[in-house]
Amino acid sequence: MQNVSVLSGGRVELGAGTLYGAINTLLKKRWIMPWETNKSSRKKEYVITDLGKGTVDREMKRLTELLENSKKIVGGETHAEKSV
């Protein structure tokens, strides 16, 4: 939860219920799996799976395309202007 806050510059505050719900969803989809490091610790750690990495890669490509298209629109560049 603290890492999300730091990464977002304090813009996103993640509650425990939201975090645990997200973790359970990621586990069900097999995008992450438990990582056994120190059984004496209460801290749970997870590692991303190959399936999860593929999903992240596709989402990053989708978001990159969305950002590039947004920049074109905000910059006023249209398909018709490119053709001229």
Rank of each mutant, 00 (worst) to 15 (best):
N3D: 15
E81T: 13
E65D: 11
A22C: 05
P34E: 04
L27C: 05
Y46G: 02
M60W: 09
T25K: 10
R58W: 03
L66W: 05
E13V: 15
L26Q: 00
L7E: 14
L27D: 02
R42C: 01
K28S: 13
V74S: 12
N24Y: 11
K61M: 09
L14S: 14
L51A: 09
D50P: 04
H79M: 13
T49L: 00
K43T: 11
K44I: 02
D50C: 01
T78H: 03
R30I: 02
T25V: 08
L19R: 13
G17C: 02
G52C: 00
D57Q: 15
N24V: 11
V12N: 00
I23H: 00
I48W: 05
T55L: 10
A80M: 12
M33F: 01
V56P: 00
S5W: 07
L27I: 10
G15A: 13
R62S: 07
L66T: 00
R11S: 07
T25H: 08
E36T: 10
I23Q: 04
K82L: 15
T49I: 01
V56S: 02
G15H: 15
V84K: 15
G75D: 01
S83A: 14
T25W: 04
G9D: 06
V74D: 06
G52K: 02
A16M: 10
I48N: 03
E59C: 10
K28C: 10
V6T: 12
K61F: 09
S41P: 02
N69S: 14
L63W: 06
V4W: 02
A22R: 10
K28G: 04
T37R: 12
G21K: 12
L63D: 00
D57H: 15
K28F: 06
E13M: 08
T18I: 08
E81Q: 12
E81V: 12
M1P: 14
S83N: 01
L67G: 01
I48E: 02
N24L: 06
K44Y: 02
V6I: 11
Q2F: 09
E59N: 07
D57K: 14
N3W: 08
K39F: 01
N24R: 12
V12W: 07
L7G: 03
E77W: 13
G21L: 09
K44T: 06
L67E: 09
T78G: 05
N3F: 09
V84G: 08
V6A: 13
L19H: 12
S83C: 05
K82Y: 05
P34W: 03
M33P: 00
I48K: 00
G17F: 00
G9R: 05
N69K: 15
S70H: 11
